[in-house]
Simulated scan of single mutants.
Amino acid sequence: MSVYDKLQALNITLPPAATPAAVYVPFVQSGKLLFLSGHIARKDGQVWAAQFGRNISTEEGKLAARAVAIDLLGTLHAATGDLNKIARIVKVMSLVNSTADFTEQHLVTNGCSELLGEVFGAKGVHARSAFGVAQIPLGACVEIELIAELA
């Protein structure tokens, strides 16, 4: 089953690559590696602003991280023209807007990791870091960046 068949089965329509909000590009290719800039969580087309430990639950956070993964897939598609060219998702780094006592950043980030696994199968299993941070641009609850290897 192709990546696009899996996306269709999951009722996912890929968005266009996001327009950068500052001075950077959405992705850079170096050799066979594709580095995607951080993508922030959005809900209903707006920044999903919240802080874990204050006004958003871990379960909602998993949905936010999943939404970021869909946006990352849209950027991967824009970068490659064909998601089937992805040999492997290498690394995901997640920044989770958290209060000092919130410790479930890894569980929030599972929303992204689980979707990448569903879409790419074994090629979607990746190394990962999840950090709690005091703030993310525009007050977003989650920001995730990704490194992929091209076939």
Score class of each variant (00 low, 15 high):
residue 74 G to S: 04
residue 6 K to H: 15
residue 13 T to R: 14
residue 101 D to G: 07
residue 128 R to I: 00
residue 11 N to C: 03
residue 12 I to T: 10
residue 73 L to W: 06
residue 80 T to D: 15
residue 26 P to V: 06
residue 99 T to C: 02
residue 33 L to A: 04
residue 117 G to D: 08
residue 120 F to G: 07
residue 123 K to W: 01
residue 24 Y to P: 01
residue 127 A to Q: 00
residue 117 G to R: 09
residue 145 E to Y: 01
residue 77 H to V: 04
residue 94 S to R: 05
residue 73 L to C: 05
residue 146 L to K: 07
residue 32 K to S: 07
residue 98 S to A: 15
residue 145 E to N: 09
residue 108 V to H: 09
residue 64 A to K: 01
residue 83 L to H: 05
residue 25 V to K: 15
residue 119 V to H: 01
residue 136 I to F: 03
residue 25 V to C: 01
residue 129 S to P: 11
residue 79 A to L: 15
residue 45 G to L: 09
residue 109 T to V: 04
residue 147 I to W: 00
residue 11 N to M: 12
residue 115 L to A: 00
residue 61 G to Y: 11
residue 54 R to K: 13
residue 132 G to K: 02
residue 31 G to C: 14
residue 63 L to H: 01
residue 119 V to A: 06
residue 148 A to L: 04
residue 72 L to N: 07
residue 99 T to G: 11
residue 73 L to N: 04
residue 100 A to K: 04
residue 117 G to S: 13
residue 120 F to R: 13
residue 107 L to M: 06
residue 15 P to C: 05
residue 130 A to V: 08
residue 45 G to C: 09
residue 93 M to N: 05
residue 35 F to V: 02
residue 50 A to C: 08
residue 25 V to S: 14
residue 6 K to R: 15
residue 97 N to M: 06
residue 81 G to W: 09
residue 33 L to Y: 03
residue 97 N to A: 11
residue 7 L to E: 12
residue 49 A to T: 07
residue 151 A to C: 05
residue 13 T to E: 15
residue 115 L to F: 00
residue 106 H to N: 14
residue 39 H to K: 02
residue 45 G to W: 03
residue 92 V to E: 03
residue 147 I to G: 00
residue 44 D to C: 11
residue 74 G to A: 10
residue 106 H to G: 13
residue 35 F to S: 04
residue 11 N to E: 14
residue 110 N to T: 13
residue 81 G to E: 06
residue 45 G to E: 01
residue 35 F to Y: 15
residue 135 Q to F: 11
residue 23 V to A: 09
residue 28 V to F: 07
residue 142 V to M: 00
residue 151 A to R: 02
residue 65 A to G: 13
residue 108 V to T: 10
residue 105 Q to T: 14
residue 86 I to E: 04
residue 142 V to T: 08
residue 94 S to M: 02
residue 138 L to S: 14
residue 72 L to P: 05
residue 70 I to S: 00
residue 131 F to Y: 15
residue 77 H to D: 12
residue 86 I to Y: 02
residue 59 E to Y: 03
residue 137 P to W: 08
residue 92 V to P: 00
residue 26 P to N: 11
residue 110 N to E: 15
residue 29 Q to T: 10
residue 18 A to N: 06
residue 70 I to E: 09
residue 31 G to D: 02
residue 89 I to G: 03
residue 13 T to W: 08
residue 132 G to C: 11
residue 120 F to T: 04
residue 82 D to L: 03
residue 137 P to D: 13
residue 50 A to K: 01
residue 125 V to N: 06
residue 75 T to W: 13
residue 6 K to W: 05
residue 16 P to I: 03
residue 75 T to L: 08
residue 102 F to T: 14
residue 99 T to A: 07
residue 98 S to R: 09
residue 83 L to D: 08
